[in-house]
Design a protein around this nucleic acid. Structure first.
Lengths: 109, 109
DNA sequence: CAAACACTTCAGCGGATCGTGTGATGTTCA
DNA sequence: TGAACATCACACGATCCGCTGAAGTGTTTG
């Protein structure tokens, strides 16, 4: 099954430019091994920085740097552990994740 | 509605590293405005290079460069127009696109 | 055939990005 | 209080990546 090519001999100019700003922003977040690993781990539930750094084989400050980018993008936010306030537990913002998912799916529709 | 934090005071070390290689590869392709625009346009049907370059406001050779990357990734392939063989029409590889979609959704599950 | 067209390839340049190192903040514990 | 811990913020160096320009292949047209 092959899609049919346009029969016109002339290319169609003036086609509208697709809007992909949200998709490229979301993809930019996922395009890094560490950030993708973070988001994948947070899909299971909250994690603190040292947990994720250990699992990903990265240094704490590096993971922290990437978390800052994810935070600025609104994809995650941090919560202090009530019993052990020295641990910052990160969790995903499900609304933002859903929006990113939708933007990506729109391009790969 | 807030996910509950782990009650343990100690972080869980030794968690498994998530596999995100396919997702980062797919995201890397989508993380560029031009490539995302190409894939979005090809979702509607085949297009030749000049059509996409015009719609995206990019030079032909730039679009061609990005198409080469998408080709190497297996996401698109080119077909010569039967009536006008000087036009190369690109179409998406739906199987590869579905795989990319699945890899991305696994991270943002 | 020659010229115009559609597209590709590649080197090179400039800017973005990643990992690291370092210093600072806040928390727990002895 | 002081030491160890968890995390952050920032700057630096190296690498990566996208855009451009120029040269080359194949196709159509006059």
């Amino acid at each position: 099954m092959r899609t049919e090519l346009p029969v016109v001999g002339e290319p169609r100019l003036g086609l509208p430019a697709p809007d992909v700003v949200d998709a490229t922003a979301a993809a930019g977040m996922l395009a890094d091994r560490t950030r993708a690993g973070i988001l994948r781990m947070l899909a299971e539930g909250p994690h603190c920085v040292c947990e994720m750094a250990a699992a990903l084989g990265e240094r704490d400050n590096n993971v922290s740097n990437h978390l800052a980018k994810l935070r600025d993008a609104g994809l995650v936010h941090a919560v202090r552990h009530e019993a052990n306030a020295r641990f910052l537990y990160y969790e995903r913002d499900e609304a933002a994740v859903a929006a990113a998912r939708a933007a990506l799916m729109d391009v790969l529709r």
